[in-house]
Design a protein around this nucleic acid. Structure first.
Length: 266
DNA sequence: ATGCCGTTCGATGAACGA
């Protein structure tokens, strides 16, 4: 089973690039972030015609997440538990029925948090604590699950081409990385690092999932790794591969993020 | 030092992003 995550930065602007990538990469499941659309305006029929089940959790103009799946989905839930007043559409869950076993999929678009400090940063940290709570609940089930999406977290300096330039940014502040570690240290595996260990000091070119549209970031490989797959122990047991579809960033009318995917024996 | 660039809504720019 191939499961991909892709922050598309607007479905209206990306329907062509997304369709081309789906046809090339052929994921069984695509977890999307920043659809920037209400559910009614998401082109669900287009993806149904391609063989996908479509589940969205959208809002007007901003945020919004979705799951496209060629495999059956069960028990779809929308929104991250823990704050009934949170109206931002950033979280969706579903169970994918694989040929061998079911996997619970959590698709997330974690708040950016800038500027820090400030209310947006407070919201980010509170949201991460709610995500940690949700992970704790799911871990108690001792079943395969994964949390994938745009975490807006640079976990380590190796995950940025120019870490110094992110030193005071909400994506890289010590408090942000501590909140992220509190989630991974529950026992979740970073699938990309499990499959692509960083080997200092002979640093190879960095592996990134985001390059800013500005200042020639792509041409300079001035990127950051902020889209992640975190796997439960039972899911890490069946992990076969995890890679980043880097070349997508160089195509026509690209998103500023690229897809990252896992292959599971499920 | 600031903006660079891109998307959205809906306007002749503002808000937001990372």
């Amino acid at each position: 089973m191939k499961i991909a995550s892709f922050n598309i930065n607007g479905i209206k602007a990306r329907i062509g690039a997304l369709t081309d990538w789906l046809n090339d990469a052929q994921p069984d499941v695509a977890i999307l972030q920043e659809i920037k659309s209400i559910d009614e305006n998401f082109p669900a029929d287009h993806f149904r015609d391609m063989g996908y089940i479509v589940e969205t959790h959208g809002q007007k103009s901003f945020n919004g997440v979705a799951i496209l799946s060629k495999l059956p989905l069960e028990d779809v839930t929308r929104g991250l538990p823990g704050d009934d007043d949170d109206e931002q559409a950033r979280y969706i869950e579903a169970t994918v029925i694989g040929d061998k076993k079911p996997v619970r999929i959590c698709g997330l678009y974690l708040p950016n948090g800038n500027p820090a400090p400030g209310p947006k940063y407070d919201y980010k940290l509170a949201w991460m604590e709610r995500l940690r709570q949700r992970a704790t609940t799911l871990l108690e089930l001792e079943e395969p699950f994964l949390m994938a999406g745009d975490y807006n977290i640079i976990p380590q300096k190796e995950d940025a081409e120019k870490p110094d330039s992110w030193r005071e940014d909400a994506l890289f502040l010590p408090q942000s990385r501590e909140a992220y570690r509190k989630i991974t240290s529950l026992g979740l595996t970073d699938a990309f690092r499990a499959c692509n260990p960083h080997n200092p000091p002979a640093s190879p070119p960095g592996h990134y999932t985001f390059w800013d549209y500005q200042a020639g970031a792509w041409n300079r490989n001035n990127g950051i790794r902020i889209d992640h797959f975190l796997l439960s122990p039972q899911c890490a047991d069946i992990l076969e591969d995890c890679q980043i579809d880097r070349d997508i960033r160089g195509r026509e009318k690209p998103s500023d993020h690229v897809p990252i995917w896992v292959k599971l024996a499920a």
